[in-house]
Design a protein around this nucleic acid. Structure first.
Length: 434
RNA sequence: GCGGGCGUCGCCAAGUGGUUAAGGCAGCGGCUUGUGGUGCCGCCAUCCGGGGGUUCGAAUCCCCUCGCUCGCCCCA
């Protein structure tokens, strides 16, 4: 029989990896809180039109990478390929901008139908930030700083920030015309893909990795030369802010990025340790998107980090290596005999209500076997209840680290364990039942 | 969509045309009918991703197919 497996490009995150993922998420949430960002969660499924309009019909993401289908009501649906369009849609739908500028973060799975390779899956995870309603060049720098500091807080090194300005819509239209004219004159030298792009998305030709194309492009007109004075000054201010923050960057006049909504600042944070998919974080300003999606013109800037790529980078990190495997419980409960087994079940509940992490052995196996598992579990304490103890209303509390044990009444055991070891402070919403 | 590499037990891995497909880890059972991490013993792939072919005979050769993986495109 054919074995069932996950769909191509859809990967499982197994228990032993979750400690690292949770640490990353916890670190990010702390950084986001410090930056006065609040979380927003949007559906994974959206109307196809949202992405077609938001990201741009000529982009690769929309043209060939979307998971799209028709639902039972004949609506065109798409599994979100990125987060920004959805966030903007939600913000508009609920009129959040009427409350003032929005400082948001989001996280979760995204979907793109591509050939999987290192650092690229069909379902992948992003963490993103969107600052909506801010035009000040300092907001570009602040957004970048949040990403930069998050990556630093995670202990990721050897990163490069690449920076460019795409200008505003007018600058881009101007540049596009100049570039198309220049490329058209050299059409026959370009490879077929680049030729096709002259008409659909000429700016994308600029960051082609093809050596031949890059050689031809050496003399191409630069976007920077087509920027208006205002755009130029704006970019200058972003750079000054980054200098003030001591964030080093490398100007890359060919950095264009594949989503149509970017204006002015565009940036990527890359790592040389990632192989072909080197971008850890990508983003920029998108002053036209809110209006494009039906809102009143609103400046905005944001970015997204790819979590799988973070995990890849962190896997060679010493501190992260400790974050493997499941965290052990505080207490491992061993019991044998019907009455004892029921007492153990109740004791586990009682300890858990008090804040203790308890693993209850449900195997019904021999004592020796259960003890063996208790030790392997890594729990510092074991509580043993056998038929003898059960009859006398006692339990054995054993310190697995020193192999010392004592006979105690169950209530004393609970008291001792809860006071001695647990982070027993309740973080539940209900008042503690202890 | 296009290239390269790979596909033997849950994991690692030997075997490269000839009788029952090594070994290690993990798991399970036992030695020890209630006290552990060591030791010893036993069990754990009628089958080598799937299908077809060549051959007296194939995990080993050929073809097709599926999957994984790396790269191109693109992006996080």
């Amino acid at each position: 029989m054919e074995k069932l497996r996950s769909l191509r490009g859809m990967v499982d995150l197994l228990p032993e990896q979750m400690a690292l993922w949770q640490a990353i998420e916890a670190c990010a949430q702390r950084q986001f809180h410090r930056a006065a960002l609040t979380e927003i969660r949007t559906p994974l499924l959206e109307a196809t039109e949202l992405f077609a309009r938001g990201i741009g019909a000529a982009t690769d993401v929309v043209g060939k990478e979307m998971y799209s289908f028709e639902d039972r009501g004949q609506r065109r649906c798409t599994l979100r390929p990125e987060g920004t369009a959805s966030v903007v849609r939600a913000v508009l739908q609920h009129g959040l901008l009427n409350l003032g500028p929005q400082r948001l973060w989001y996280g979760g799975p995204m979907f793109r139908y591509e050939r999987p390779q290192a650092g690229r899956q069909r379902q992948f995870h992003q963490l993103g930030v969107e600052l909506l309603g801010f035009a000040d060049p300092r907001s570009d720098a602040e957004a970048i700083a949040i990403a930069w500091d998050l990556l630093a807080a995670l202990g990721i090194q050897a990163l490069t920030l690449e920076l460019n300005s795409l200008g505003d819509a007018t600058d881009r239209a101007h540049y596009r015309a100049v570039l198309v004219e220049w490329l058209d004159a050299r059409r026959h030298q370009l490879d077929p893909e680049a030729q096709a792009r002259i008409d659909t998305n000429p700016l994308r030709i600029l960051d082609s990795k093809s050596p031949g194309t890059q050689a031809i492009l050496t003399g191409a007109p630069l976007l920077g030369d087509c920027l208006s004075e205002a755009s130029r000054q704006r970019f200058e201010r972003v750079r000054r802010a980054l200098d003030q923050l001591d964030i080093p960057y490398r100007l890359n006049p060919r950095l264009v990025r594949g989503l149509d909504y970017y204006t002015h600042t565009a940036f990527e944070i890359t790592s040389s340790e990632l192989g072909a998919q080197a971008t850890v974080c990508g983003g920029g300003r998108y002053d036209g998107l809110v209006e494009e999606l039906g809102g009143t013109a609103t400046p905005a800037v944001g970015w997204a980090i790819g979590l799988e790529r973070l995990v890849l980078l962190l896997s060679s990190n010493e501190a992260a290596k400790g974050l493997t495997g499941a965290k052990a419980a505080d207490v491992y409960l061993v019991s044998r005999g019907e009455a004892a087994e029921l007492e153990a079940l109740a004791l586990a509940q009682q300890l858990r209500r008090g804040g203790c992490a308890v693993e209850l052995d449900l195997s019904g196996a021999a004592f020796a076997k259960q003890l063996k598992r208790a030790n392997r579990s890594g729990a510092p304490w074991a509580v043993l209840i056998g038929e003898g103890e059960s009859e006398q209303g006692m339990v054995i509390l054993k310190d697995l680290r020193t192999a010392t044990e004592q006979r105690l009444a169950p209530s004393d055991t609970v008291r001792l364990l809860l006071s001695d070891l647990c982070d027993a402070q309740s973080d539940c919403l209900a008042p503690t039942t202890r």
